[in-house]
């Protein structure tokens, strides 16, 4: 088993390396597609011709195309994504600063999804083809049709501006900021033992997290419903009922357990999509995350910042996918058998 496991992990890691290389290549050609002088844009519009030449030398832009490509890959290997022409800092440093706010937001949205999407989907499956099911189905379709950015604006206007029960923007109120440790306001205030600050941070998180989660919950509800229904029709679930198991046990132990695979896969995929969707709402809610950084960079035509984020996001999603596969491997004996190969015992009996 151990050797098979090692072989599987190596194969999987090799695919990750391949994917990262593919992404890097894609980004390289995006840079090349940009009209105008790359050295000029890297050095900034205000740079003198001498400065531009220095940058050209440093980035290897005087080399032939394949030489430039190799130089680019070499810089990536050293974690060098270039510098922002706007903040004048390395893109990696900017990303490091913006990441916590996004992680916090995405984590909260994933949590909401698990807490709402999964149970509601199961409820719909339990009431298949009856009233609650039809209502949930409509709700899910409608939720999936809402433009995130618009929903964010409206919720912000209603709950923030009109009713004044939730903060409009930012991650914490002025003067409530906890000392920065992780960069996530909710975590930092807890670390500082500041409950008031924590509550304040949570209130700031509510609207963006709810907004971000709506379409994902809508999607999750439908997927959970469909896979639960398939699972509930399976013979082994009928068998559980034939043993006298209660409906709740049938739902959880036999239904949910067997369709955990698609659900884990979905949550993993959605994590990637959420990073993309965060682009739409971090700006609306004034959260200094990767999405807001990216939007800002696009408006400033900050090439290296944008493409750095593109590469970073792609790599993150690839790693999340790897994690999902590993979770499947650990949690599902069927996946284990398929990936690692196992011979049926019964053949010997």
């Amino acid at each position: 088993m151990d050797r098979r496991l090692t072989r599987y992990l190596l194969r999987r890691l090799w695919l990750v390396v391949l994917a990262v290389w593919g992404l890097a290549t894609l980004v390289f050609f995006m840079i090349k597609a940009i009209p105008g002088d790359e050295a000029q844009s890297a050095a900034g519009i205000t740079a003198t011709p001498e400065q531009v030449e220095v940058v050209r030398e440093r980035l290897g832009l005087n080399l032939p195309l394949w030489g430039q490509y190799l130089a680019y890959l070499g810089r990536l290997l050293h974690g060098d994504l270039g510098s922002s022409i706007f903040t004048f800092r390395p893109v990696t440093a900017d990303l490091g600063g913006a990441l916590p706010a996004t992680v916090e937001l995405v984590a909260a949205a994933v949590l909401l999804n698990l807490l709402i999407g999964v149970p509601v989907g199961m409820l719909a499956a339990a009431y298949e083809r009856r009233r609650p099911d039809a209502a949930i189905r409509l709700g899910a379709i409608a939720g999936g049709a809402l433009p995130l950015f618009w929903l964010g604006l409206i919720l912000q206007h209603l709950f923030g501006a009109r009713l004044g029960i939730l903060p409009i923007s930012g991650t914490q109120s002025m003067g409530m900021e906890a000392p920065r440790v992780t960069g996530m306001a909710t975590v930092d205030s807890l670390l500082a033992g500041d409950l008031m600050g924590w509550w304040d941070a949570v209130q700031h998180l509510v609207l963006p997290a709810v907004t971000l989660s709506v379409p994902f919950i809508a999607f999750a509800v439908r997927l959970v419903r469909t896979s639960m229904i398939t699972a509930l029709e399976a013979d082994h679930v009928v068998m559980a009922r034939a043993k006298g198991a209660s409906p709740l046990r049938v739902m959880l132990q036999h239904g949910l357990r067997t369709c955990l695979g698609p659900i884990v896969t979905l949550i993993g995929m959605q994590t990637g999509w959420m990073i993309g969707a965060a682009v739409l709402i971090e700006g609306v809610f004034g959260r200094p995350g990767v999405g807001a950084y990216l939007t800002e960079a696009v408006q400033q035509k900050d090439t290296f910042a944008v493409l750095g984020v593109v590469l970073f996001t792609g790599v993150t999603v690839t790693l999340v996918n790897l994690a999902v596969d590993l979770v499947q491997l650990v949690s599902d004996p069927r996946v284990r058998a398929a990936q690692l190969g196992a011979s049926p015992l019964g053949a010997k009996a």
Binding site: A234, D235, H236, V238, M239, R257, T258, D332, P333
Partner: peptide
């Protein structure tokens, strides 16, 4: 049940 292939819970 009729089909022993599917009557057992795989997980």
């Amino acid at each position: 049940l009729q089909d022993p292939q599917t009557t057992l819970n795989p997980v």
